[in-house]
Amino acid sequence: MQNTTSKQRFGSLKKIASNNSIVLVVLAMIFVATLAEGSQFLSLQNFMNILRNHAVIGIIALGMSFVIISGNIDLSVGAQMVAVAAITVSFVNSTGNVVLGLIIAVIAGCAMSTITGIIVTKGRVPSFIVTLGMMYIYRSLCMFFMQGGGFYLDKTKAPFYTQISNYMLFGKIPMPVIYYAIMFVLFWFISRYTKLGRHIYAAGSNEKATRLSGINTDKIKILAFTLLGLAISVAAIVESSRMGSINSTSSGNAYELNAIAMTVIGGISMEGGKGRMSGALFGMLILGIINNMITLLGVNVYLINAFKGIIIIAAVLLQRKDREL
């Protein structure tokens, strides 16, 4: 009797482990880092640093997850973030109205992504191509209007704006971490508990069958882009507030690739229809911990991307094995 129950217990443990191999990876990485670096790695402050440094891309990755689950991809997110931030900063600088600035940021971000979504669905052009084009357009327009340089926040006109990202809650928690948490809960809730979320999964899994279930799949895919636009807007606000500036050439570089890396590491399949929002969270943690470990362990910084590459491929291999089991 006892034997069987323990077997069952072992079986369910195994199931949990295989469903969440990504969690095990994070735990293993923390373990290794702790052994190697001990107290410095495990400190609350270090963790807050990791989270703060990756919150912006992490927020974009949340939106990116929706777009990828719906069966598309967006390469323009980095450039679009710079564009949204530039619009916001110049508005705040000229009017000093921070609240209106934030609203404009959200509207601009959502509108840009919605346009992308409309071109992708109504024009029947692969999202890879549309967003590649959008990336060039946004980046080039930013460079044109900013004349290759950046916009700096006028701290005398809007001192509050810099506080958005640089304030520490209870003196310990950086605000970007809070924004990430709020955005995570929002996206997690939509993905799990709303009709739209379910339809995004369905459209990415089998668009034809979803359409033939009487669901407007074009609308669903556009809305997935719109939600990504929301995430980009928040990222743009956090980034520009934290830096106190936004630069047309140096800001937002490779953000799209890092965001895609986070989602892929987190088990969100590029085929669409598969993956959970917790994956995007763990993907961010894994990338964050790698960057952090390399710094703490004093490994040559030029090797960071090699480690990232290994982790991306390893994560996908690991998930492939899970699927076959």
Binding site: R198, S205, A209
Partner: peptide, 13 residues
């Protein structure tokens, strides 16, 4: 398979 099944969703969904 092609037109009716949403393969990544559960029976319930």
């Amino acid at each position: 398979k092609e037109n009716a099944i949403i393969k990544d969703l559960s029976v319930q969904d």
